[in-house]
């Protein structure tokens, strides 16, 4: 996989020949209007749904191998 990766990286190097002076990065199509959500509680209180797909849960919690800090 390492060799393939360096192949891909070599291939994308061609972007270096593009003159990007003063070109801004593209952020979206510029057509969507920024929208904000109202500060209202509309979601939550669905623990069963939240936990239903958990590969391992104990009571109301998800679990992971013990983390030592």
């Amino acid at each position: 996989m390492r060799q393939e990766l360096s192949g891909i990286l070599g291939w994308v190097e061609q972007l270096n020949e593009v003159d990007i002076t003063d070109v801004p990065p593209m952020i979206g199509t510029g057509l969507a209007v920024p929208r904000l959500r109202e500060d209202v509680v509309t979601d939550g209180d669905k623990r069963d749904a939240v936990l239903a797909n958990a590969p391992d849960s104990v009571g109301p919690y998800f679990t992971v191998p013990k983390v030592v800090e």
């Binding site: 972007l15 593009v18 990007i20």
Partner: peptide, 21 residues
């Protein structure tokens, strides 16, 4: 890899600029 520190400008940022073009 392309997002990693030191490569962001060379890859991702450059690509987003080419995308503008």
């Amino acid at each position: 890899y392309v997002l990693s520190s030191g490569y962001y400008d060379a890859y991702y940022l450059r690509a987003q600029k080419v995308r503008t073009l």
